[in-house]
Design a protein around this nucleic acid. Structure first.
Length: 156
DNA sequence: GCCAACGTTGGC
DNA sequence: GCCAACGTTGGC
């Protein structure tokens, strides 16, 4: 039996890597995640074909700008071994990698940004537990329910 | 194992 | 650029 598709939200700073960048390259290793909870979601929760809401953070109008899909199982993030990378982790070794990632494939760009501001106005429909609008939440990768995924895209 | 210091995230 | 929130580190 095919497992039910899961859904995720992934944040990226557009000046570092934007939805347009993803559209250009098609598929991208989601490197640089250095938070254990976010890593665990990628390593233990994600499966090929899962749906991803692509979110622009730390920008003039933060919000959801496109969709993508999980395109690979989790595998070690190469940047942890690279001394020249800003993501280099001296405690990680090839034998015992610490950080994992998945590949993300472009699906589509939304016709408009569904802004954080707008998302907050729909807090009731999304539920209190929706991680994006919980106070102080800084996770860059987290699960979204199928209902939340559908609802957010229905705002487009 | 506690917790102060420090670093990062990300909205504003 | 500010700063609240909060995860991580490391001394003890």
């Amino acid at each position: 039996m095919t497992p039910r598709r899961r859904y995720w939200l992934m944040k990226s700073e557009p000046q570092a890597f934007s939805i347009d960048d993803l559209q250009r390259v098609g598929t991208e290793p989601w490197n640089g995640v250095r938070n254990y909870q976010a890593r665990n979601f990628m390593r233990d929760g994600m499966r090929v074909g899962d749906g991803v809401l692509f979110y622009h953070s730390n920008t003039r109008i933060p919000g959801i700008v496109g969709t993508a899909t999980v395109a690979s199982p989790a595998y070690p993030d190469d940047t942890q071994f690279d001394r020249k990378s800003p993501y280099y982790d001296p405690k990680a070794t090839r034998e015992e990698p610490r950080w994992q990632l998945v590949d993300i494939a472009f699906e589509r760009k939304l016709s408009r940004t569904i802004s954080l501001d707008e998302i907050k106005q729909h807090a009731d429909e999304l539920g209190e537990e929706f991680a994006l609008i919980r106070r102080g939440n800084r996770l860059s990768v987290f699960p979204v329910s199928a209902a939340q995924y559908r609802y957010l895209l229905s705002l487009e």
